[in-house]
Design a binder for these strands. Sequence first.
DNA 1: CGTTACGTTGAAAGGGTTCAATCCCTGTGG
DNA 2: CCACAGGGATTGAACCCTTTCAACGTAACG
Lengths: 248, 248
Amino acid sequence: MTQPIPLFNANCNECGLKKLCFPLGLEKSEVLRLDALVKRKPALQKGDILFRSGQPFQAVYAVKAGGFKVFTQHASGEDKLIGFYLPGDILGVDALSTDEHVSTAVAMDTSTVCEIPFKDLEQLSLQLPTLNRQLLSIMSKELSDERMHAEFLARKSAEERLALFILWLSQRQARRGFNDESFRIGLLHRDVALYLGLTPETVSRVLAKFSEEGLVEWRQKHLTIHHRARLDALANHQEEGVCGRIAG
Amino acid sequence: MTQPIPLFNANCNECGLKKLCFPLGLEKSEVLRLDALVKRKPALQKGDILFRSGQPFQAVYAVKAGGFKVFTQHASGEDKLIGFYLPGDILGVDALSTDEHVSTAVAMDTSTVCEIPFKDLEQLSLQLPTLNRQLLSIMSKELSDERMHAEFLARKSAEERLALFILWLSQRQARRGFNDESFRIGLLHRDVALYLGLTPETVSRVLAKFSEEGLVEWRQKHLTIHHRARLDALANHQEEGVCGRIAG
DNA sequence: CGTTACGTTGAAAGGGTTCAATCCCTGTGG
DNA sequence: CCACAGGGATTGAACCCTTTCAACGTAACG
């Protein structure tokens, strides 16, 4: 892992993901200062671990290519999928308050990341208000992602969960400027099941049903959305529910 | 709500919650500068709304007394409980990236808050590294709370969810220095059910069972834990599960 | 070409939801 | 002080969906 592999050495100013990442909103000169902090590491192979639960927190990581699965490791051996990180996403901020990583990140494919030592980042962000704001913004995005996750899990029916999940995947693609109707998704059904609080069998069944009805096609690692409107309807189906005032 | 109610005007240095709140780690002189930003508002009555989804984001709030329920309001009328905030907790940071509140906060009891205009806070935190770190830390805590919420929802059985939830409530009490075996909790069963992705009926049944077995007593708005060890065991019962390597 | 892990499909079982009726607590007004 | 409403909590029975367990199919990899 420390052998001299030729690195993909694009700097932040030239990086196609800069609008999704820390440089967002920064002046060119400011980006250069940020760029100076970044350590670009050799590519990780599928299954490689970026950081492991319990390791000291020293840096955050920007995904440049590939993708990562993040999960918790309980002493008992049970794993819980927390999230997926794609190019442009920032990994590792969840360790900020504990000084120790609380989750483990595994490469889903061959992946590259930019490593940014957190101390340096913190110091620089005190000098660059925009960067500081961006750091907060990234934390906030993490928060809303986690809230989305809770939203998936709170849905009662497996169909709703999956419909919502697929639409969310699609949105993420769109936000990155990729095709959001048909794209590659390096997730096992087992991962999806774990993430959505279902079993692989149920995922398989629901997906089969979606396919029958011409909603979506998810074969191997490729996903195609055929009928977004109906998928939307499914995802927001039971939207009457409690209604009453929660106040009290 | 704007009548001249006598305010509880303790400053941050004298506040019993300062170790849970923004002042954590700050010098006395720094706390004074923070204190100058704080607007102390009249108490809110049970059911009053602190902020509403869609309102522009201008300030964060520190809960001083009472408590708040936070939920999303879907257009369809469905409400989803996102979280509970007790004294020492910070409300409103979730709006940071959108400049608009994405949730609604309702007082569970008569409650007081400290309002801190975010612009001022952001500016000051650029000058006080410790404050900036504390702001990030608070965001990080929000994140781990939301992750806890997802953890509740991911548990398969209603018993596990409730056991875990009760233990979590107890931990929060302990962190505040209150009695964590027997305490008041201003939540309706309906709220709990909403939060845990269950129905009030199921909550009622499980609580009845817990009571029968002498685990916990949750009558009206008072909760007593009688047998923490067994509750612990219940919460972590099915801790074998998937096991296999998620990597791949 | 075999092995391994993932995916699918089936039938059975269990747990939570649903719906409805009843109880209980709280606050109100007589 | 008591009666009465109203909302929430409880309890019961039936149903439905997901899980479970098991067997089979299929894709990837050496």
